[in-house]
């Protein structure tokens, strides 16, 4: 394989040279070898688990999912064949996600900006960060219970489903959406804050050195620099909202169909109740009422496709933005 040069040095053919020689694990300490083996097994095992979930759900989905299920509304029926489709839960998932993100994004990005760019006094910054950590660590069922207590206050009656006698049930898309924003907020906050903290200080100073104010620097330099971090945070937030069931059961009413409250077209829907794919899966699975396990599988498949598709989409957005700005060129500053 080797070629001898006129200087008597034996050279490898230039194109075929692989990576240089490395120490072989066979000579490592046995604990290191064990750790390496464990790392391999853990990584491969996770791949196998993920593949099993996707393949099994894919198999079930292909088996039971019919396009008509996506466009027909649920019917209350005891037999599986008469229970209709799950158009309403699909719409419910989309609406709830939109409300949650629309409420969470300004709060999360605003507080991340405040922490990363102002953050004074320090004690207050520490309190804000720990509060967000507390919210992040609170189980969703506790957040749901808390939300129910809040939205059942008579003061907040206009935001939710109200019985004809005046009883406030505290259930509506608004109620569920605002609690969903709480579970979407921490990942979005963290992603944005970390992105901002990764922007080198001399980028900010370069803007200050041009006579720009802090707010102009944030608008023109910092926010564009962390756009892909925000996109990542939004994906994480959306996945958490899409996957949540407790808040739906507590605060959305978990009615099979969208039930608008009042006749106003948009606010009626927002104040009304409904369900999502997660609660639909639960209700129809053998663990719930068990009325239509095949439809539960079909809906679960749709749920997985949603989340995977979303990940792909946001990944693509972040990447194309980075491309357009040259952010992912090796050696770039950001």
């Amino acid at each position: 394989m080797s070629v001898s040069s006129p200087y008597g040095i034996r050279l490898r053919p230039p194109m075929k040279s692989g990576p240089g020689r490395r120490s072989s694990p066979l000579h490592w300490r046995w604990t290191d070898r064990l750790a390496l083996a464990f790392a391999w097994i853990a990584g491969l095992g996770l791949c196998a688990i993920a593949a099993a979930i996707v393949l099994y759900m894919g198999y079930r989905g292909v088996q039971y999912l019919r396009p008509s299920l996506l466009v027909s509304r649920p019917e209350v029926s005891l037999s599986q064949s008469g229970s209709g489709g799950f158009l309403d839960p699909v719409l419910g998932t989309l609406m709830l996600t939109a409300i949650g993100i629309v409420l969470a994004a300004p709060l999360a990005i605003g507080s991340a900006l405040w922490i990363a760019e102002y953050g004074r006094p320090t004690w207050l910054a520490r309190i804000v960060e720990s509060s967000i950590e507390v919210v992040a660590g609170t189980p969703d069922i506790v957040i749901a219970l808390f939300g129910l207590a809040i939205f059942q206050l008579p003061l907040l009656a206009p935001f939710s489903f109200t019985a004809s006698g005046g009883g406030v049930f505290g259930r509506s898309f608004l109620a569920a959406g605002s609690m969903m924003s709480l579970i979407a907020l921490p990942p979005l906050f963290t992603a944005t804050r970390d992105g901002l903290q990764a922007v080198p200080d001399h980028m900010r100073e370069a803007a200050f050195a041009l006579g720009k104010t802090k707010i102009a620097t944030i608008r023109a330099v910092l926010l564009p620099s962390v756009r892909s971090n925000i996109a990542t945070g939004v994906t994480l937030g959306i996945s958490r909202i899409i996957g949540d069931t407790a808040i739906v059961v507590f605060l959305l009413g978990d009615t099979p169909r969208l039930e608008p409250q009042g006749s106003a077209p948009v606010t009626g829907l927002l104040r009304g109740t409904g369900s999502t794919l997660t609660s639909y899966v639960f209700d129809n699975s053998p663990a719930g009422e068990g009325g239509a396990p095949q439809k539960a599988y079909a809906a679960a498949f749709v749920l997985i496709v949603f989340v995977l598709g979303l990940n792909l989409l946001v990944d693509r957005i972040g990447r194309s933005h980075a491309d357009a700005n040259g952010l992912n060129v090796a050696g770039a500053v950001v």
């Binding site: 080198p200 001399h202 980028m203 100073e205 370069a206 803007a207 050195a209 023109a220 330099v221 564009p224 620099s225 700005n325 040259g326 952010l327 500053v333 950001v334």
Partner: peptide, 9 residues
């Protein structure tokens, strides 16, 4: 500055 730092635009 020491590091070239054009803005992401």
């Amino acid at each position: 500055f020491q590091q070239p730092n054009p803005f992401p635009m």
